[in-house]
Design a binder for these strands. Structure first.
Length: 206
DNA sequence: AAACCGTGCAACCGCCTCCTA
DNA sequence: GTAGGAGGCGGTTGCACGGTT
């Protein structure tokens, strides 16, 4: 499969599109050794690919749990919503969409939304509504927090530092850890607030 | 029919973080 | 404590393909 002009060898490493034979070698390696330790792939399989290239190929293409096909309207909404929350944290967003890769989501966003060009008015409205809702609840939350702090100032120790991540460990697959720059309590609240079903029902009743 | 354009997707690059010796 | 290596992540690029002009 050398239809690309950039299928080439450079510094001993092959670059460009993967061949079926290379895929087979990589799959064989992962079956035997598991994923990880990508730099030893070349040594053990004879594959002329860098560890990075192997990892990328596995994560974005060969993984058996990958979902093939188009992004569904539901998934699109999740992407919009999570992007509103986290920005370009594609891997974080991808964790909320089983079977989708960060690369896939990144590509999707780029072609559909990057140029200020949402695919439908519905989605634009949904996004605006979500952001508004978030602002309102955030406001309410801060007021509530003040009340709570008056009552019990030390109660939030559990949510400090690493605590926030472990506190929501059972939700981790749905709502990955938020960006560190933001307040953990706020983000935990935002996760609770973002009731996906309600959101989906509003913007894309199917 | 040919040229052009937009979209989809695979892959690379460079930077950053984490882990280990 | 720190340096080096490995892996993770986001940004970007390049090609194929289908639709439109």
């Amino acid at each position: 499969m050398e239809q690309y002009g950039w299928g080439r060898e450079e510094g001993g490493w092959r670059k460009g599109p993967w061949t079926a034979q290379e895929d087979k070698l990589l799959l064989g390696y992962v079956r035997q050794q598991g994923d990880g330790r990508w730099n030893s792939v070349a040594k053990l399989t004879g594959l002329k690919r860098s560890g990075k290239s192997c990892r990328l190929r596995w994560v974005n293409y060969l993984r058996p749990d990958l979902k093939r096909g188009k992004i569904t309207p539901q998934e699109e909404t999740v992407i919009l919503e999570l992007h509103a929350l986290w920005g370009n944290r594609w891997s974080t967003i991808a964790r909320s969409l089983p079977g989708r890769t960060d690369n896939e989501i990144k590509n999707y966003w780029r072609t559909h939304f990057k140029k200020g060009k949402p695919s439908s008015k519905n989605i634009e409205r949904a996004r605006a509504r979500f952001l508004k809702q978030r602002r309102e609840i955030m406001q309410g939350h801060h007021e509530h927090q003040r009340d709570v702090q008056d009552d019990d100032g030390a109660a939030s120790a559990d949510n400090n530092g690493d605590g926030a991540a472990s506190h929501h460990a059972d939700e981790a697959t749905t709502w990955p850890a938020p960006p560190p720059a933001q307040d953990d309590d706020d983000l935990a609240m935002m996760r609770d607030m973002a009731d996906m079903d309600d959101f989906l029902q509003y913007h894309d009743p199917m």
